[in-house]
Simulated assay, not measured.
Amino acid sequence: MKQHWWARAVLALACMVLAACGPKPPIRIGFLGGVAAQGFNVSEDGRNGALLAVEAINRTGGVRGRPLELVVREITFEKQHSQAMTEALLSARVEAMVGPFTSTQALAVLAQADAAGTLFVSPTANAPELGGRDDHFIRLNGALADSAAAYAALLVGRGQRRVAVAFDESNLAYSGQWLAAFRTSLAARGGAVVGETGFVSGPELPYAAVVRSLLAPAPDALLFIGRGADAARLAQQVRKQGSDLPLAAAEWAATESLIELGGQAVEGLLTAEPYDPSDTSARYQEFHRNYRARYGREPGFGALGSYDAVTVLAEAMARARQGESLKDAVLRHGPYQGLQHPIAIDRFGDSQRPLHFVVVRQGAFASLR
């Protein structure tokens, strides 16, 4: 009987040793992005960039010997749906989340992040309500008001003082605030927003009617605040209606869909990105090659932002002290090296990025010189 007891003890010990030597469980990171089929190209690019970052980190051993695993959920602009998908990720026991990508979606799930104590890192959402708060939301994009002011300064410098604006009301937390900041900055420089037309993105959007309302006050330029697909179709309507006015689009539109759908109509259109498309650094060029090889197209700013978001989370996890929350670790260990720029995050979880103005030239984004 005694011998049998020792045999069982030895067997149990052997099992414990084998378990300890086996593969460690993955660290699950949630990804909360828009539905690709509904034109959320920034989110689709973001998912692709996040996957490349996860794979790159896993090739070097993961985080403290544990691989990363990306758990993806898609969300719409409907508040209840965004909250339900967030709850699904929280139930999957993710340790952090990348996203959401729009300000409206981010504001819809902010309370859930704080209640769960789960850190959200958004590559792009930047409504004023998301900044200057001690919460579980990290904003990697620059302040919305700074972007709008930079556009105002550039347009006035080009002699475009009377601007008519179309803005997507489905993401009003971003587009409405962006327009308000642009209106104020333009007025401060002697210009004026002479026309404002709201629209709701979707298959029934009356692009022709929107453009007619924009052209009515005889502006010097037209500005679109919306997705790349909508900006492309609005630009086509502008040209169909016989106008050769200069066109601009807020940085939300700076995706491949703008060029693919807009064609000749978007040639010369001015927009901006939080990344430099002409960057020749080895770090960015390697990412660019890998992205093109995997997905067969140019990486958008959502892809770069998500890659940086995963990088920030992984480095903070690796350097966290015993018992330190991930939020505290992220805030304490910066700045982080992004694909193009160092990422400094302040005590409120806010960051800044330089804005790079580009124009569509021969079917590609070219840096404004």
Rank of each mutant, 00 (worst) to 15 (best):
L11T: 12
L13Y: 05
L13Q: 01
A20P: 00
C21K: 06
C21N: 11
G22H: 04
P23C: 04
K24I: 00
P25H: 08
I29V: 15
G30C: 04
G30L: 01
V35K: 04
Q38D: 11
F40H: 12
E44N: 09
D45R: 05
D45L: 11
L51D: 13
A56T: 14
N58T: 13
N58K: 07
T60Q: 15
G61D: 12
P67G: 06
L68I: 12
L70M: 12
V72T: 13
R73W: 06
R73I: 13
F77E: 11
K79T: 15
K79S: 15
A84W: 01
M85I: 03
E87Q: 14
E87T: 05
M97S: 04
T102H: 11
T104K: 05
V109Y: 07
L110H: 12
T124H: 01
A125L: 10
P128Q: 05
R133Y: 05
D135W: 10
D135C: 08
H136N: 10
R139S: 14
L140Q: 09
G142H: 09
A143W: 00
D146H: 09
S147M: 06
G159R: 14
R161D: 08
V163G: 08
V163R: 08
A164D: 08
V165N: 06
F167W: 15
L172Y: 12
A173I: 10
W178Q: 03
G191R: 12
V194N: 11
G198W: 03
F199R: 02
S201K: 15
G202K: 00
P203I: 06
L205S: 07
P206Q: 05
P206T: 04
A209C: 10
R212S: 15
L214N: 03
L215M: 08
L223C: 14
R227I: 09
A229R: 12
D230L: 03
D230M: 01
A231S: 15
R233H: 08
D244W: 02
A249D: 06
A254Q: 06
T255Y: 00
E256H: 08
L258D: 00
G263Q: 02
A265K: 10
L270N: 01
T271D: 01
T271E: 04
E273M: 15
D276R: 12
D279Y: 11
T280G: 03
R283D: 14
Y284L: 10
E286Q: 15
F287M: 03
Y295Q: 01
P299W: 14
L304T: 05
L304V: 05
G305K: 10
A309R: 06
T311K: 09
A314N: 03
A314E: 03
E315R: 13
M317G: 03
Q322Y: 04
G323K: 04
E324D: 05
K327Y: 11
Q337I: 15
G338L: 13
G338W: 13
P342K: 01
R353V: 11
P354S: 07
L355K: 07
L355S: 06
V360L: 02
R361C: 05
G363K: 04
L368M: 14
R369S: 13
